[in-house]
Design a protein around this nucleic acid. Structure first.
Lengths: 252, 252
DNA sequence: CACTTGAGTTATGCTTCATAACTATTCGCC
DNA sequence: GGCGAATAGTTATGAAGCATAACTCAAGTG
């Protein structure tokens, strides 16, 4: 992450002091280096010594910035959620707001291609909690998770607002789940009323379905299919997710 | 656990010698201890010293049985696939062969409950390829994966044989995928003709959908839902998977 | 200028993976 | 029974990583 050096010293100090900026830059560099090493090695290992060497430092110096391995890991996980959420949101907003099928596909495709592009970050979020790492209850990670997941929900909110939302194929909803539809994810999407319960359920099923495909593909369980077959399977999955959940979809 | 055939013995039905039995028992005990420790600690860590201490041995002794950590890990992964496959198969065969919806639900429920019961083994299979471990191409793991996945395919074969298979909701199939339907997974299920391509696709989508739910739930991404809501969501997912794939399902 | 702050270093301890070298028990065989 | 080989264990040792402590040094501040 590039930080600007401010040549102008005469101005009264802005919020981030010079030291704070340097510190933030170092933190960024540590995280970037960690990600790059994970990319290069193709796993989610994290060795302070490697990171430090790569940065021309010694390992103990990193403890000035992260209390221990878990803290760095947590930061990377939060960043990953953030990155995923941003990527998906940008894809969503690239298409006109009234092209709901296009946006649905764009969201799904962005989710998938992000996972393919950043398998390590994807693994940090959705793989097993990395050995030795336990997700803090109600920590920053769950917060970020909701934000990313909210992108999908936003689509349904939009469709609902426009009255374009059909009835999901499976529309009998459990009471407990119906209750959740009213209270959960309140702040994830600024606009839109709470979803009807059966749509909330359909939304979760969309996520399941999409996520199932993506994680199976990312971890190689679809390797027996050639790439174009996987692409087609993905599009079929997206179509089916939309159609079965009552999401508007063009007559094919 | 499969015991190695001894090529030195003259008879093909080589009975395992006393030593071989002791060795096999030790190998089993190592794997069981490893699993138990993973269970107790709630992660997929693997420390030779811990395992050895638990068994009243010293760490280096374990190297008599496994060349290194990865080899033990691989063995555990293979066992996990095996266990999953067996568990699902048993659930399937517990119901009469003509109760196809029942069997479908049983397979799905077994998959889910196994993941809940053995989250560590589940993680070994479907989590990130464990740090430092790379799945050997076409190794024993992919083989075992196909066997487990084959249980689902068997259901569709049964239904197809009886002419009970409807048309999947999404039934336009890519050529490449259609080709796979003919050739892939040939030996996974002894009985049954190759599936029609659109059903093969639907079968994969069922797996995606089911797996997506299970992995999200297992890794805590559905923790915001109360347990009964998750149960209902699961059943809705199963219903939808069956109905959209043309699998016979009782009029609800 | 002396003083504080914090980023970095070297030095050190602990733990784990892994190997080497040694001991002792079990098994096969005469 | 007793000998020799194979194998299950041991202790000893080294390399590497996580983590902390103690020290150095430079930049910013009264």
């Amino acid at each position: 992450m590039v930080t600007q050096q401010d040549p102008d010293q005469t101005l009264p100090p802005a919020r981030p002091s010079r030291r704070e900026r340097a510190r933030a830059a170092t933190i960024d560099e540590i995280k970037e280096t960690a990600l790059r090493l994970m990319h290069e090695h193709g796993n989610t290992d994290l060795r302070f010594s490697d990171i430090a060497r790569e940065m021309g430092m010694t390992a103990p110096a990193l403890y000035r910035y992260f209390a221990d391995r878990d803290e760095l890991l947590t930061a990377l996980i939060v960043d990953a959620y953030d990155d995923l959420g941003t990527t998906v949101a940008e894809a969503r907003e690239e298409l006109p707001v009234d092209d709901l099928p296009g946006r649905f596909l764009a969201v799904a495709a962005a989710y998938r291609s992000w996972a393919k592009r950043e398998p390590q970050q994807f693994a940090l979020i959705f793989g097993i909690p990395v050995p030795g790492y336990v997700a803090p209850e109600e920590g920053p990670t769950t917060e970020a998770a909701k934000r990313a997941m909210g992108q999908l929900k936003a689509l349904f909110s939009d469709a609902s607002e426009r009255g374009l939302l059909g009835k999901p194929l499976i529309d009998d909803v459990d009471d407990a789940l119906a209750a959740c539809a009213q209270v959960e994810h309140p702040a994830t999407v600024p606009h839109g009323p709470p979803l009807p319960p059966e749509t909330f359920q359909a939304c979760l099923q969309c996520w399941s379905s999409l996520h199932g495909f993506v994680i199976l593909e990312t971890y190689g369980h679809f390797d027996f299919l050639p790439e174009d077959a996987r692409d087609e399977l993905f599009h079929a999955t997206v179509r089916q997710a939309a159609v079965t959940s009552g999401f508007p979809w063009p007559h094919r």
